[in-house]
C-alpha cells in the first residue's frame, strides 16, 4: 500500500495536497476532535469535485455528518447539498438524477452519502431500489461501524465482538454477535452494478483514485469509506489515521474494487499485521483482552482477517507461499 505523504514526495500529489482544493466540507463544523467522517467526506467530495470541475450535487442522509455540518446558521458545505430524511437518501438522489436527465444536464453528477446506519439499515430498501434501477448515482457510505450521533448503538456494520451501547459485553456475552452483521459491499456487488469499492482515510491517495474512477462511470456506483470515530471506538483523537491504517493492514477492512458483480482488484497489504495490534488500542474491544476471556475470542476476528486476505487476494506473498 503506497503510503507516501499526500504531497509530491514519493507519490503523485493528491487533491488534498493542492493549495486550491475545493474544501467541499470546510472548517468550523461541529464534528468531534479527530473525527474520521469529516475527513473522509472532504476527501471524497473534493476528489469528485476536482474530477468533474465542480459539477456535483450532494444528497446527505441524516446522521453525524449531516448534524455537525449543517445546523443554522452554520453550513460547512461548499457544494450544492440536500438533506431530507434518515432512510431515503438513495431515493432522493434518484429523484435529483432524474430531474437532471429530464433537463438534459447529464454532465452534472449526483452523489448520495450517509453513515453506516443510514446505508446498511434504515436506508437499505431505497439503496437496493436505486441499484435495481441502476440509477446514475454514486452512493458513498462513511462507515464508522455504529450509530454515533445517538450514542454508539449497534448497526448492521458493527464488527463482531465490538462493544456498543446496545451490545454491552458481560460475563457470558462478548459484544456484537459474530453470526450477525451485513457485508454491504458484497450486497452491492450482488446487484451487478457497474462499480463497487471500499476505501479508507488511512490511504487518502487510494480513496481519491477510486472516487474519481467511480465519478466517471455511468449507472449506480457504491463506495464505502472506513472512517474511525474516536468517541465511538475509544482511542485518543490524534490516532484516527493510524487506526484506519491498522484496520487495513490487519485484513479486517479489505480495500478492493468490483465491477458488474466481479472482484477486479484490491489494494495490496505489504506487511500484514495480527488483528490484535488493531484491536488493542480501541476501548470497544478492550473486553476481549480481559482476564477471564478465552484466547479464541480474538481468534474469531483473526480468522475473518485471514479469510479476507485470501478472498480479496490482499497479500501476494502469503497467497503464493
Amino acid at each position: 500500500m503506497s503510503n507516501f505523504p499526500l504531497g509530491n514526495i514519493g507519490g503523485t500529489p493528491t487533491v488534498q495536497s493542492d493549495f486550491a482544493r475545493p474544501n467541499s466540507l470546510t472548517g468550523g463544523h461541529r464534528g468531534c476532535q479527530g473525527c474520521g467522517e469529516a475527513l473522509g467526506a472532504r476527501c471524497a467530495i473534493d476528489a469528485a469535485h476536482q474530477t468533474t470541475g465542480g459539477k456535483i450535487l450532494v444528497v446527505n442522509a441524516t446522521g453525524c455528518l449531516e448534524v455537525f455540518s449543517c445546523c443554522f446558521p452554520e453550513n460547512s458545505w461548499s457544494v450544492p447539498w440536500l438533506h431530507s430524511l434518515f432512510g431515503n437518501a438513495p431515493a432522493v438522489a434518484t429523484g435529483v438524477a432524474a430531474a437532471l436527465r429530464s433537463r438534459g444536464q447529464d454532465s452534472i453528477r449526483v452523489i448520495a452519502q450517509g453513515g453506516d446506519g443510514a446505508t446498511y439499515d434504515i436506508g437499505m430498501g431505497c439503496l437496493s431500489g436505486m441499484f435495481d434501477r441502476n440509477d446514475d448515482v454514486l452512493y458513498i457510505c462513511y462507515d464508522n461501524q455504529a450509530y454515533m450521533n445517538t450514542g454508539v448503538q449497534r448497526s448492521g456494520a458493527t464488527p463482531p465482538l465490538a462493544r456498543t451501547a446496545t451490545t454491552l459485553p458481560n460475563k457470558s456475552y462478548l459484544g456484537s454477535d459474530p453470526q450477525t452483521g451485513k457485508n454491504l459491499p458484497e450486497i452491492a456487488m450482488a446487484h451487478g452494478i457497474p462499480y463497487v469499492a471500499t476505501a479508507s482515510i488511512g490511504n487518502i491517495r487510494d480513496l481519491e483514485q477510486k472516487v474519481s474512477r467511480a465519478i466517471n462511470i455511468r449507472g449506480s456506483r457504491y463506495i464505502q469509506i472506513h472512517v474511525p470515530c474516536p468517541l465511538g471506538w475509544g482511542y485518543p483523537t490524534a490516532e484516527t489515521i493510524r487506526i484506519a491504517r491498522l484496520a487495513v493492514q490487519c485484513g479486517l477492512y479489505p480495500l478492493f474494487e468490483g465491477e458488474y458483480g466481479k472482484l477486479v482488484g484490491s489494494t495490496p497489504v505489504e506487511e500484514p499485521i495480527p488483528v490484535e495490534s488493531y484491536l488493542r488500542p480501541q476501548r470497544r474491544f478492550a473486553h476481549l483482552f480481559g482476564k477471564n476471556v478465552s484466547a479464541n475470542a480474538v481468534g474469531v476476528l483473526q480468522n475473518i482477517a485471514n479469510g479476507n486476505m485470501e478472498k480479496y487476494r490482499l497479500n501476494w506473498e502469503i497467497l503464493d507461499a
Binding site: G117, Y147, T150, G151, Q153, A165, T166, L168, Y173
Partner: peptide, 21 residues
C-alpha cells in the same frame, strides 16, 4: 424492539441492559 433515535434511545438501551444482565 430497539432502534436508536434521540431522545428516547436511553430507554431501549436501559431495557436491553436489564435483559442482558
Amino acid at each position: 424492539c430497539a432502534y436508536p433515535i434521540t431522545p428516547q434511545t436511553h430507554i431501549v438501551e436501559g431495557v436491553g441492559e436489564l435483559v442482558r444482565d
